[in-house]
């Protein structure tokens, strides 16, 4: 390829607009497809509803005059109570969804737990995505020793069942009260752990994509123009791999919420008294003969949330799938 610098610049500009046009039209097509995908839209609506509810927990707490930490043994295992719907009969209407084994309000507790579980899923997914994209782009772009090394790390990590890695690392970080306090406080430590373990898939995906992108003409031209590798990676490559990766985000979050629940079941999840759906479900299993709703509700919320996230992930994948026809 022998072209004059100006011609190259021109072609870059051209290519860039072309890229934008292509991606825009791709995005537009995806959006229009999404707008007709009722299942995905419903899932999205349910998820947004749950998230908003969770973050409105303090509002409900003061409106209902209940507390998610306040114990009241005399009111323990109160049933679900919605007089308007004639559910529960003679019960305390303050506790819409009843109370738990210590008389704490289940409704607001579920909302606070939702904050924790959703944040863990979301931030851990973002963290693993950030690591995954960075490492994927870097390895794909540079190749060589870096690529080999990261590949070795990935193979190593993938060769141990995630659950064992999670257990071992959690045992170290979550057991250490110095780490579990302060900046690593409570769920934050779990976010770090889950985020640090979940990036390998993304890295592989992004690396493959980067390998193909880096040979494209506009990257080659940018290189010829003397753009720094960092600039090329972050300005030219990252935006292009982003759309692929964003698709896996939703299902990642779902998977992470399930992982938190599994860790809680094994005794290394979010530590009580901080509530999470996972530890509420685990705790409630012990009491299922006294308050079945205590088992059903957190289980149902985990299930619905993860279901919504998986459906959204599926919907996005279908919508962004360039081979699928309308």
């Amino acid at each position: 390829m022998t072209t004059s610098p100006s011609a190259t610049a021109q072609s870059i500009a051209q290519l860039n607009t072309e890229e934008t046009i292509v991606s825009k039209s791709l995005t537009q097509r995806a959006l229009s497809r999404l707008s007709r995908d009722k299942l995905t839209l419903t899932a999205l609506a349910v998820l947004i509803f749950l998230t908003v509810m969770a973050f409105l927990a303090p509002v409900f707490e003061s409106a209902l005059e209940v507390s998610y930490t306040k114990t009241n043994i005399r009111e323990k295992f109160a049933p679900i109570c919605i007089p308007a719907l004639n559910v529960g009969g003679d019960c305390n209407p303050k506790h819409i969804l009843g109370t738990d084994d210590l008389g704490r309000d289940v409704f607001v507790r579920l909302l606070y737990a939702g904050q924790v579980s959703l944040s863990i899923g979301f931030f851990a997914a973002i963290l693993s995505l950030a690591i995954g994209i960075t490492l994927g782009v870097v390895t794909g772009f540079y190749g060589g020793v870096i690529d080999d090394f990261i590949n070795w790390v990935i193979t190593t990590l993938n060769s141990v069942p995630t659950l064992f890695l999670l257990l071992i690392i959690s045992a170290v970080i979550l057991r250490n009260p110095d780490l579990a306090r302060g900046i690593f406080g409570g769920p934050f430590a779990l976010i770090i752990i889950l985020g640090l373990l979940g990036w390998t898939g993304t890295t592989r995906l992004v690396r493959g994509e980067t390998l193909s992108i880096r040979e494209r003409e506009y990257i080659l031209s940018a290189r010829a123009l003397g753009a720094s590798p960092t600039r090329i990676m972050f300005v030219h490559i990252v935006p292009n791999v982003f759309s692929i990766v964003i698709i896996v985000l939703a299902s990642d979050i779902g998977g992470l919420i399930l992982a938190e629940a599994a860790l809680s079941f094994l005794g290394i999840g979010v530590k009580v008294p901080t509530p999470s759906w996972g530890n509420m479900l685990t705790d409630a299993q012990t009491y299922f003969t006294m308050g079945l709703h205590l088992v059903i509700l957190p289980g149902l919320l985990i299930f619905i949330t993860v279901l919504c996230l998986f459906i959204i992930g599926d919907g996005l994948r279908d919508a962004f799938d360039p081979t699928s026809t309308d």
Binding site: T69, K70, T71, L102, R104, G267, V272, P273, D283
Partner: peptide, 16 residues
């Protein structure tokens, strides 16, 4: 200690 619902309950009540 974590994983002992009995002591977790004591802790929550004592705190309260």
């Amino acid at each position: 200690n974590q994983g002992n619902s009995r002591r977790e309950a004591i802790g929550a009540i004592v705190q309260d």
